[in-house]
Amino acid sequence: MAGHHVSTTINGDAFEFVCEPDETLLDVLRDRLSLTGSKEGCGTGDCGACSVILDGRLVCSCLVLGAEAEGRTIATIEGMADGDRLHPLQRKFLEHAALQCGICTPGILVAAKALLEKHPDPSETEIRYWLAGNLCRCTGYDKIVRAVLDAAAEIREGRDAA
C-alpha cells in the first residue's frame, strides 16, 4: 500500500500527515496526531464517540478515510475550549454532572455543539433525536439533555446581551 500525503486543517492549525489508504480519519487523529480525545467505541458509526465536524458537518471520524481529509477543515473536541475558557456546553456538562465515566463525553459535546450552531433553541425532543447517534451507557441521557438545554439558553442570552 502506498502512503498518502495529506494536508489538512484541524482546530484551525495546519497539519500534514502520511497515512495508508485504508486508514480512517479516527486512526489518523489518534495514532498519528496524538489527538486521542476522539474515542473509538465501535468503529462502525453506531456509537458516536468519534464525532468530529468535517467542513461544517457532524460526522463519525471512524467512517471517514484519512485520505479524504485532504484540503478539508476538521474540528475535534481538543479545539472546543478557547484556551483555558471552556465552551458553555463543556461548563454546563460539568455543572449538571452530565458525565459519569466520560468516554462518550467528547463525542456528545462535539455533536451538541453542531446542534446548537444549527438550532440555537432546540426542544428536548430535538436534542434527543439529534444525539441519538451518540450512545451513553452511564447516565440514561437525562442530565446530558438538561445540560444541552441549559447551555443553549446561556448561549442565546449571551447573544441577546451582545
Binding site: 458516536g48 460526522v59 463519525c60 439529534w130
Partner: peptide
C-alpha cells in the same frame, strides 16, 4: 438512514 453523523455523509 442512521444518525445525524451518518446523515452528514
Amino acid at each position: 438512514i442512521g444518525s445525524t453523523q451518518i446523515q452528514g455523509r
